[in-house]
Amino acid sequence: MTTRYAFGGDEHIFVEVAEEMSLDAFFKGLSITQAVRDSDIRGVTEICPANASFQIKFDPDVIAADDLLTELKRIEAATGSGHSTLATRIVEIPVFYGDPWTHETLMRFRERHQEPDGTDLDYAARVNGYAGVDAFVAAHAGSPWFVSMVGFVAGLPFMYQMVERAKQIEVPKYLRPRTDTPRLTVGHGGCFGCIYSVRGAGGYQMFGITPMPIYDPKQEIGYLREFMIFFRPGDIVKFKPVDRAGYDAAVEEVDKGTFAPLIRNVDFSLAAFHADPTATNAKLLGVLHGA
């Protein structure tokens, strides 16, 4: 990993920790951005961690661009390869795979897709070498995912699958982006999963939909009352397949204000994950399900 610094105009410093995605790159970026936050540098106005990079917005009337650059490099050197442990939370997200709403949308934009004759799930299963959609869904919902970035639009999580690279699901994005995506679509593009927090344009393949809102600008939903955005970088996600009845029941609970997401606090160690991903994931899921 070679860190690359670049100015984004006169108000941003853009830092690429690594060209390719890895949990190591994410953790290094997270450590540096945490250290920048702790340093409380005058003139720094926004600190935005991303998957394998991060961005600092600053006021050049308060701090000179070169001075901030020097300071960031000093922090990077002092942080080293970064902390490899994280006190975080694991969240279970119900997903209705192959639901009628994303199905309607993917049919509407079929001419923008690599494989007009199938569905996005058919395509993703095939290009990733799965026997069929069921096996693919089992893999998608089988391992935990790491929230490595929040953004694009309000509160949208980018999620990195916590399995060995050879097993990671990878799919190209649509040939041309759609102009519509249902709210709460569970999507995938490149190596990243996502949940569309709002309805809108999108280029990721669509696998299903969750009944659990993750963004509420009115702050009326119980678990979003304190803050309108659910996800934070570093969260761990586990998808749970539900059928139509399970989806409808959850939507009803959300509407009634009784839906409570399953959330548990966990400690994650990057070294332990690298040493044995299967055992680490089993332990995480044990915490989630109260084992």
Binding site: E11, H12, M21, F54, Q55, R165, P172, G190, C191, F192
Partner: peptide
Amino acid sequence: QPFGAGSDPSNIVDSCYPYGS
């Protein structure tokens, strides 16, 4: 293309976008 970036040469591993970028 680096791992995770996607297949088009204009793709990168999803990053932040500066205002005005």
